[in-house]
Amino acid sequence: MSVQTPQTIVPDYSFLKKVEFESKIKASACFQCRKCTNGCPVTFAMDFYPDQILRFIHLGLRDLVLNCATIWVCASCETCTTRCPNEIDIAGLMDYLKESAEKEGIGIKDNKTYMFHRVFLDDVKKRGRVHELRLMNEYMLKTGEGVKKLKDDSWKQDLKLGLGMLTKGRLPLLPKGIKNKKEVKRILENID
């Protein structure tokens, strides 16, 4: 997911306004001190640093931030949000950008992190609670990870862990549901 930074940028502040209005997070308060980036534990896997994402929002580079790997690499550890001297909820912004990316269908194709979230919520929608075994099966099927694992032999390691879980009584085969499934389904239906 590598994206080129445009050469000439004409700032468009309408995106910043939209982000602030919808997320209720004051992105414009960023003065680029980079404290977020310095404390971020996952910068090694990002294409842009958190402070750059803030700057891109200021400049109106919508496509760039919705397409980047960074928003999906963010582990929501909340270090940036905790340390920001201007009290910007940066991790919250990353969530807002992920939600926007999904709504607009940008950057979610072949995105395994997105697929995991999607499959997770679909599972909650069914019974009101997550059943880990079903969740993993669905994920392996939907992402094609299962087939990939069969080809490259990494399924053996997964099987070892799975069997370990099973023999330790940590992998119930049948899911538990809640009584009021409808209510939870309703909460989750409004998001699509």
């Binding site: 969530d95 807002y96 995991f116 997770f120 919520l121 998001i191």
Partner: peptide, 8 residues
């Protein structure tokens, strides 16, 4: 994480 990532 799934819910807060996809729908606040």
């Amino acid at each position: 994480t799934a819910a807060h990532s996809l729908s606040h």
